[in-house]
């Protein structure tokens, strides 16, 4: 079974606070699911090299990236986004200190 320490380590990487009960249940659930994933070990290797596997879902022309540019939005739209900030100063998002 996956250890308590390992669950805590992964949870921290994911920035997820878990209660003691949640950690315990997570140990059981993840172990069961990861055991099930072992099935993949017997799957054959695909013919194409991993780095050549298409990331576009096998369909052509899905990876058209757009230009990295600032698009003008109307003010009403901007105000709606700002209204959704949990904490703000003027039109800026306010956050806690990092350290």
């Amino acid at each position: 079974m996956i250890s308590k320490e390992e669950v805590e380590k992964i949870a921290k990487l994911a920035r997820l606070e878990l209660t003691e009960q949640e950690i315990e249940k997570m140990q059981r659930d993840l172990s069961e699911i990861l055991d099930y994933f072992d099935l993949l070990k017997k799957a054959p290797k695909p013919k194409s090299n991993y780095s050549n596997i298409p990331r576009n879902n096998g369909i052509a022309d899905l990876n058209g990236a757009r230009k990295d540019e600032v698009l003008q939005r109307d003010d009403a739209q901007v105000q709606k986004l700002i209204a959704g900030f949990p904490d703000k100063k003027d039109d800026y998002i306010k956050v806690k200190t990092i350290l």
């Binding site: 949990p86 904490d87 806690k96």
Partner: peptide, 23 residues
């Protein structure tokens, strides 16, 4: 993550806000 929109829990620092909001 409790910063831009959605549920935001109070915390002592930024990491704490993330952990609690997501948790």
């Amino acid at each position: 993550d409790g910063i831009k929109y959605g549920l935001s829990e109070n915390g002592k620092d930024l990491l704490d806000v993330y952990l609690k909001s997501k948790g």
